[in-house]
Simulated assay, not measured.
Amino acid sequence: MSVSGTPQLVFVHGIGGLRDAARERREWLTALAEGARAAGHADAVSGLTQGWLAEVRFADYSDLFTDAEAQGDGPGTLDEQEDAAFMTEFVGSLVDELVRQALERGDRRTAAVAEDARAQLPGDDEDEDDEEQGVGEPFRILGMVLTTLLQVPGLRETAQWASGTPLLWHLAQVGRYLRRREADGTGRTLDARIRERVLKGIDPDRPLFVVSHSLGTVVAFEALRGHRGPVPLLMTLGSPLATGTAVLQRLVPQPPRTPGRVERWLNFWDRDDIVVGRPRLDRWMLPNAAGVVPVTSRVDSDGLWVHTATKYLRQPGVAGPLVEALKK
């Protein structure tokens, strides 16, 4: 039973398949506990796992994507023209970022693979051949691009996708959310139903701490604009929010600004996280009335495939500030 005034901590997941909310809640908490110990907060571990430091919930909206998916390799709700354009832009930005990162590190092999992937991206000159290509051809090409990208040394072994096609369908969830369609029988669009999951059961009279990851950072950002209670800390991990026109310019409201009740916003990125654009979020996000803007910090995880929430949460630089804020 929750105690009146006990902080509320909500985890908001990102792209992927159907989730086991109870299991993932435990995994996120275990990772956070490891990070807390590394940050010198071993005394807070029992409070995290036993629930007296904060009432912890995992906001699971994965079924809203998977219920609408067709049996087979991908979702049956993609719009051929609109989603193809979005995914081409989005995947292109990921490839460009990987090329840039590899060149900065002097990693010529990774840069060569990423350049090969970039060369396969659909171009404007292919528009004239759309009828000959047939339905689904842009997605087939993008799947091949991502399959090539997965050949980066170390990425195939550590990533959770065997080929580019399932990765493409998971990345397409970002486009489906931002398209703001797929209404249910009551007229609520997919994005609205997802945001409702994030705030379901939240007491507006108690402080709310939000830890969001990947697509979940977009969801949390938009969900909090309608939240009336105090938000001492918003934490975004591996966020695509700063991905230029692909994501940033599709956010609501425009121009994007820090949600009104957020008192502090910490944004974390890993240089080896291919789903994250450059940390431009603080430059592109307007402050709220209290002057709050995101503060971005870089972390370095082991392995090339670092786009998992648990890898971020194990970092003492991530777990430390969260635990310190919960203790106040």
Rank of each mutant, 00 (worst) to 15 (best):
L190N: 05
R156I: 03
Q151L: 03
D191I: 12
S163G: 04
W169N: 15
H170E: 13
D184W: 11
L178P: 01
Q173F: 01
L178G: 06
I194A: 04
G164P: 06
Q151E: 10
R180V: 13
W169G: 03
R176G: 14
R181G: 15
D184E: 04
G154T: 13
W169A: 02
T165C: 00
L190R: 05
Q160P: 00
R193Q: 11
D184A: 06
A192E: 10
L168I: 05
D191S: 15
A172G: 14
P166G: 05
G185I: 12
L155T: 07
G175W: 10
L178Y: 10
L178M: 09
R181S: 15
A183P: 09
D191P: 12
Q173A: 10
I194G: 06
R179Y: 07
V152Y: 10
A162E: 10
R156S: 07
P153G: 05
T189W: 04
Q151F: 00
R180M: 05
L168P: 06
G185P: 00
P166S: 06
E182Y: 00
E182A: 11
L149K: 07
P153N: 04
R176H: 05
G175V: 05
A192V: 14
Q151W: 02
R156Q: 13
A162I: 08
L155H: 05
G154S: 07
V174L: 13
L168Q: 03
A192Q: 12
G185W: 15
